[in-house]
């Protein structure tokens, strides 16, 4: 059986918004940053504060989102941040080829050999990493509160009212609930294997070995997910899903606040496109104050 996120009703501005507004606004911010490729901190930072304001207006408790923030932080700081700092291609080189002062070098040596090379960390790479992390967090903090503050009963309706087909809308509804269901199954399996003496924190060996030793957790959970999927299909078939145009019982209505936020989202997207493509503003550059600050 599919379970839902830890949602509870709160009387907040964000929860009073139509779910479509929140999804569309999030898409506007993501598109505004990515389609015209905005890297200018003078645009990125205001957008970050807009997102942060909406996040704070959701009045979501820290204990609810602590784990989500942990995963996001790992992703942003260790993958995006370090990748930006240490890599060449695909990282900063995708937006800049400017010569930049080298701050320090990180040695990479193949274990067990003397072979290796030095990776220079430049001012440009450091600014890129900071910029990229800010962009990612600007997008993520709009998504994090959704599972906790959006009624799970209107996931499907929201997508249907945005024009998706019945099947796509219900698929999105089920997909939203997949992760908490997966987490529940993982907890049960983890308990079952711990009761057989399995200790995850004592996994030894190389990466391949460690992954192999995760099999007692991964295989039962994947099997359980497969079985759940088949059960859901049978249950939906037996109640005639997909045989004709569906009536969606829940109705959604935009309020003035929704139009305001949708207008803001559209304005942000259009402004970013115009600034970048019309005036050439918004591309990557390293501000002088930053260079002076880190080189000093």
């Amino acid at each position: 059986m599919l379970v839902t996120w830890k949602y509870r009703p709160r009387n907040t501005f964000v929860q009073r918004l139509d779910p479509r507004t929140r999804l569309i606004f999030m898409v506007c911010i993501i598109f505004a940053l990515t389609i015209p490729e905005i890297w200018d901190y003078r645009i990125v930072l205001p957008l970050f504060f807009v997102s942060l304001t909406l996040y704070l207006l959701a009045r979501i408790e820290w204990k609810d989102v602590r784990r989500a923030w942990l995963y996001i932080s790992i992703l942003v700081f260790f993958i995006v941040g370090l990748n930006g700092l240490l890599s060449g291609r695909g990282g900063p080189s995708s937006v800049t080829n400017l010569p930049s002062p080298v701050l320090f070098e990180v040695p990479f040596v193949i274990p067990g050999t003397d072979w290796g090379w030095m990776v220079p960390v430049t001012v440009s790479k450091l600014w890129f990493a900071l910029n990229q992390m800010t962009r990612m967090i600007t997008m993520a903090i709009l998504a994090i509160p959704i599972p906790y503050t959006m009624d799970p009963n209107i996931y499907g309706t929201a997508f249907r009212r945005m024009g998706a087909s019945d099947k796509v809308s219900f698929t999105m509804d089920l997909a939203f609930r997949f992760l908490p269901t997966f987490a529940r199954d993982l907890t049960i399996t983890m308990d079952a294997q711990r009761a057989r003496g399995y200790e995850m924190d004592k996994l030894k060996g190389g990466i391949a070995g460690r992954i192999r030793r995760l099999a007692p957790l991964i295989i039962p959970v994947v099997m359980q997910s497969t079985v759940t999927g088949e059960e859901v299909i049978d249950a939906m078939d037996l109640r005639a899903f997909g045989t004709s145009q569906r009536t969606w019982l829940k109705e959604l209505h935009y309020a003035p606040r929704d139009y305001m936020l949708l207008g803001l989202g559209a304005a942000i997207f259009i402004t970013c496109c115009v600034l970048k493509w019309g005036f050439g503003i918004g591309g990557f550059f390293v501000p002088d104050f930053f260079t002076q600050f880190v080189v000093r």
């Binding site: 009963n153 249950a235 109640r239 997909g242 004709s244 009536t247 969606w248 019982l249």
Partner: peptide
């Protein structure tokens, strides 16, 4: 079905009960 957990697809009771007639496209 044998196990109601296998049968329930919606996250809320009202939606679950309405699921079949919604699929038939009946009037609200």
């Amino acid at each position: 079905l044998q196990d109601p957990e296998r049968q329930i697809v919606a996250s809320n009771v009202y939606n679950e009960i309405a699921f079949g007639p919604e699929n038939l496209g009946l009037p609200r």
